[in-house]
Design a protein around this nucleic acid. Structure first.
Lengths: 332, 332
DNA sequence: TTGAAAGCGCTACCAG
DNA sequence: CTGGTAGCGCTTTCAA
């Protein structure tokens, strides 16, 4: 029960491959009688074109690569789901790779994708990545690239949310709720996304003439555990914060857990707001106030930017998807 | 800046392609001097083998397909992440497709994967799927298949958890906590997984000589909304349940939300236990007692089963990954 | 309307 | 140790 090729069909019918090829693709130059025979036989034998032969011929693979820091993280999973759906709609398959948020793994993912001759790459750099040469190299060999979620200062199309402004708004909410000492729980300083969000936080403080207190700013590796210990450190300060903004879902969760473990209450003792998925907020108690990111749109836009490039539009575009505040019960 | 081929290298050096091929693959029969030259030039020009030429030659693609109901669902994302990592370790790339938990989409995903000539498929059928002919057809054309998470009564290798027994244990926990009227919130009855888990639930009731109350069993489409309305219906019964077992993360979340919205308390008014991810339980209040599924192991085993088949081991295996109870604060 | 042949990049086999 | 060549499945061009 092997797959059947055009040549085999041709032999079975005693005609030439090229005739079969024409018939199968609905081109001119085959008598409708013969065409029927060929089509019938092809269907009967379950003929499928061999995409590798086609790729070899045309140097086109109808395949794109996706590199994501952690597919098991809800935020990314939603974006990837969308990218995959949009790509499939246009007849592209996605090769999804997971960099585990590590620079070296990310490089090897790209390596593999290049070897697979993907036609383009959509990537969110790892939180370790500071050198983007491996990504820029793609452009040099004419592979279109789009960055998503985490931008970088390189000349490549990207889709991100309004990081600074959303953080500014979130911080402002805490201020409006009466917070006096607001802590910032973010990712590593090398990540532009962190810098932007911290910018927004500082901007909000400035606008309200509030001091920027260094010891209330924690920028470390993004993980549940580091979020936990950072928050505990904050709570153990002589003058602990009365509000926290956390820039990642994991950090929101760990902050909440830490606050809880100290017997403090949200939002009365410590208010909390952060960047996270809505369905998680839905099951938390209290329900978290959060920055709602439109992952569907990010995914759609990311693919669109790539698709444009695949179709020859080479201008670099930076798309910003507006995030909006969703206020629930963890802020006053 | 195009990719360079072996032929081009050969021409540049004035030697034959076959020599270049041998040198590049480290085979015997090339003077080390010439080999150095070839390797150096290849490196300099950034030579990459064209996988499509290789595939065409060997009829092997080093690619496997994955079909998942919903990648944005945490449980699946974790499994997929593991499958991808294991596959990459063995030099396989994954084409991940998302069926949206729909039968028709699932069929078209498989269609595309077959067209891509993936060497094998790892699939979790959609909750709509009752006819498995499209999956069995893969075996007929010699494409190895492995089912995961949701098994079916077909002769195909699979990895699932101990569905019945874990549900039995979870129900027993509720009984031990003093529950008298335990509701079962599950997926559609056509899904074997649901049947198994319901089996375990009923078994536990029987063992404790408790009646099986029909109106306390809700088996509908798995979604947050249907879980919400089902739970509300349960709570509105003349004799509402004092405990609920929910067989999916979404259902646990929606049950919790419903209980909360009626002003009832967990676990005092209604105890709750379910199948979910640990980090979500960590941020819920109260922290959920749950059936902990080892997604890492499921992913690893799923790939291993496929890998065995890819290497010619054709016997059908059914692997059961043991889930275990993790008791926290939503049960007594 | 149909057939023959070349070529995409690579490997394998047989010559020299 | 190196070169020549056929062929994987398909498309394309040219010839019949």
């Amino acid at each position: 029960m092997k797959r059947i090729s055009q040549r085999e069909i041709a032999n079975l019918l005693g005609v030439n491959v090229s005739t079969v090829s024409r018939a199968l693709r609905g081109l001119e130059g085959v008598s409708s009688e013969l065409r029927q025979q060929i089509l019938a036989l092809a269907k009967d034998k379950g003929y499928r074109p061999n995409p590798f032969a086609v790729s070899l011929r045309y140097d086109t693979t109808r395949t794109i690569g996706v590199v994501v820091p952690d597919i098991s993280f809800n935020h990314f999973a939603h974006i990837v789901k969308r990218i995959e759906a949009e790509a499939r709609k246009e007849g592209y398959m996605c090769i999804i790779t997971d960099s585990d948020d590590k620079y070296e793994t990310e490089k090897s993912c790209l390596e593999l994708l290049i070897n697979m001759h993907v036609e383009g790459v959509i990537i969110c750099p790892s939180q370790e990545t500071t050198d983007f040469a491996h990504i820029q190299r793609l452009r040099k060999i004419n592979v279109p690239v789009v960055l998503f979620d985490r931008d970088a200062d390189i000349d490549i199309s990207s889709v991100v949310i309004n990081d600074a402004d959303s953080a500014r708004q979130a911080t402002k909410t805490l201020i409006d709720g009466g917070a006096k000492r607001i802590a910032f729980l973010g990712g590593p300083n090398r990540v532009k996304q962190t810098i932007e969000r911290k910018h927004g936080y500082i901007e909000a403080l400035r606008e309200s003439n509030m001091p920027i207190i260094k010891e209330l700013v924690k920028c470390n590796y993004i993980s549940f555990n580091s979020g936990l210990s950072d928050t505990l450190e904050l709570l153990d300060l002589p003058e602990p914060p009365d509000a926290i903004i956390a820039t990642h879902g994991l950090l929101v969760g760990s902050a909440m857990r830490a606050i809880d473990s100290r017997g403090l209450r949200i939002p009365d003792d410590v208010a909390l707001i952060g960047y996270m998925s809505d369905w998680v907020s839905d099951v938390m108690s209290p329900r978290m106030s959060f920055v709602k990111q439109n992952q569907r749109e990010m995914g759609t836009k990311a693919f669109k930017l790539l698709f444009d490039q695949l179709n020859g539009d080479n201008c670099v575009q930076h798309v910003i998807v507006k995030a909006r505040l969703e206020l629930r019960d963890s802020t006053k």
